[in-house]
């Protein structure tokens, strides 16, 4: 465990108006580590995740990504975001572009790839998630599960070093949760560093190297899945886990 952390946060604070959402979160994510964040709604776990790529700007504290302090105002966060893929609860696929264009837009625009290379990669990624036959369709007719699989490969097309998942299955119909979780499982198995905010306890238990339990804007307890799920120490963790289905 003497690897340098890929992401490190120091004392993050974030408020929305009078609502103090993050109350000093200091955490780290190691290369190739899979960290799940669980906790009741309103505990600040999504806000914490969204701080990691600066979609929310913390008022206090620092975030280091691959050794660079991205909370520094002089740092161009756009460059670092290219290395941090994000998957949203509501998919946020681009409805005016075809499935293929959803994937190739950013790599081509940000000069990482030629159009041809990007197209080839898009087809390969779509094959991997079983959407190759939809390449030239607009995403409007896709199911929720298909949209989320598209959103995942759209992020992967930037060849990120870390993937951030913000409740990736919360907005899905139950029968589509499995197909999305399978894609994420394969991804983390391949060694992708991942931070996953999720309500799927069974999934968190299965894929995570480490689980963080957050409540009231703080990380209350962290440990291996078996420590958190089988022998939780903190009464709030115990209370939360007793209320959710695993």
């Amino acid at each position: 465990m003497n690897k340098e952390p890929m992401i490190r946060t120091v004392g993050l604070h974030k408020s929305f108006g009078s609502l103090h959402v993050l109350k000093g979160v200091s955490e780290h994510v190691l290369p190739q580590e899979v960290v799940s964040i669980i906790g009741p709604s309103g505990s600040g776990k999504s806000t914490f995740l969204r701080c990691l790529n600066m979609l929310e700007v913390p008022e206090e504290g620092q975030i280091f990504f691959e050794g660079v302090e991205i909370t520094d105002k002089k740092v161009d966060v756009n460059i670092h975001r290219q290395k941090m893929g994000m998957v949203f609860q509501l998919f946020n696929v681009f409805p005016h572009l075809t499935v293929r264009e959803n994937i190739t837009l950013a790599p081509v625009m940000l000069k990482k790839k030629s159009k041809q290379e990007a197209n080839d990669m898009a087809m390969e990624l779509l094959n991997r998630v079983g959407l190759a036959d939809k390449a030239d369709n607009k995403p409007g007719r896709l199911s929720g599960g298909q949209k989320q699989r598209l959103a995942i490969v759209r992020a992967l097309a930037m060849e990120p070093d870390v993937m951030l998942f913000d409740e990736p299955t919360s907005a899905l119909d139950p029968e589509m949760v499995g197909e999305v979780l399978d894609v994420i499982k394969n991804l983390v198995k391949s060694g992708m560093t991942s931070v996953i905010v999720t309500h799927e306890m069974g999934f968190a238990k299965e894929v995570s190297d480490r689980v963080l339990f957050m409540d009231d804007g703080m990380v209350i307890e962290s440990g291996t899945p078996s420590e958190i799920f089988n022998t939780p120490q903190n009464p709030r963790t115990k209370d939360f886990l007793s209320k959710v289905l695993i």
């Binding site: 975001r81 290219q82 941090m84 949203f88 946020n92 837009l105 959103a151 930037m158």
Partner: peptide
């Protein structure tokens, strides 16, 4: 939808690219 902005920015697009290629066409 503001999620469109967030998705574009999370990919590394800057504000202008997001406006021109994601927001305005919609």
């Amino acid at each position: 939808d503001h999620g469109q902005v967030e998705a574009a920015r999370s990919l590394g697009l800057n504000g202008r690219q997001t406006m021109l290629h994601i927001i305005l066409p919609q």
